[in-house]
């Protein structure tokens, strides 16, 4: 997922150590540092949950693929079954994200096929998956 916690922290560090330009007024500086503070708060939460969220999302997509694979031809069904049988190579976030990107691309292709076929039940299953994916990635602002 982008940006990663590493990228966010890199950006926050840059924002803190880079001197403001001569034309930056106090309002601008306060706004910028307020934003950095908020990013750090979000990064703290994300660092704790990112691996779990990515692994859970990947597992959810694989479970949906496993359920729907038999309904498709050998080409797509075979890829769905293969993806469903995969396990995580590592719980490092970059590795999980690589797998996530592959699974998401397959999900996009699968959903388009489901729509073309007019399969309402499968469509609801995918849309329900989207809701769970969004919930897994939910972020709460430090104030709320």
């Amino acid at each position: 997922m982008t940006p990663s916690v590493r990228e966010v922290l890199q950006g926050c560090t840059l924002a803190i150590v880079t001197p403001p330009s001569a034309d930056a007024g106090p309002e601008y500086a306060a706004s910028r540092f307020g934003m950095v503070a908020m990013m750090l708060g979000l990064a703290a939460t994300e660092a704790e949950h990112a691996a779990q969220a990515a692994a859970a999302e990947n597992a959810d997509m694989r479970a949906v693929f496993a359920g729907l694979a038999p309904a498709y031809d050998a080409a797509l069904g075979g890829r769905l079954s293969a993806a469903a049988a995969e396990t995580e190579a590592s719980l490092d976030v970059p590795v999980l994200d690589e797998a996530n990107a592959r699974l998401r691309r397959l999900l996009i292709e699968l959903h388009a096929r489901i729509e073309d076929a007019g399969d309402a039940a499968a469509n609801r299953a995918i849309v329900s998956l989207y809701g769970r994916m969004a919930q897994l990635r939910q972020m709460a602002l430090p104030s709320g």
Binding site: T2, P3, E7, V8, Q10, G11, C12, L14, A15, T18, R32, M35, V36, M38, M39, L42, V127, Y130, G131, M133, A134, Q135, R137, Q138, M139, L141
Partner: peptide, 24 residues
């Protein structure tokens, strides 16, 4: 080069929230 915090906020928190809205 990760220099603008507002871009980070938009591409991160706001994008996640927008995904929730679209999914709903």
């Amino acid at each position: 080069g990760y220099r603008e915090p507002i871009l980070c906020f938009s591409g991160w928190y706001t994008a996640r929230r927008q995904d929730e809205i679209i999914a709903e």
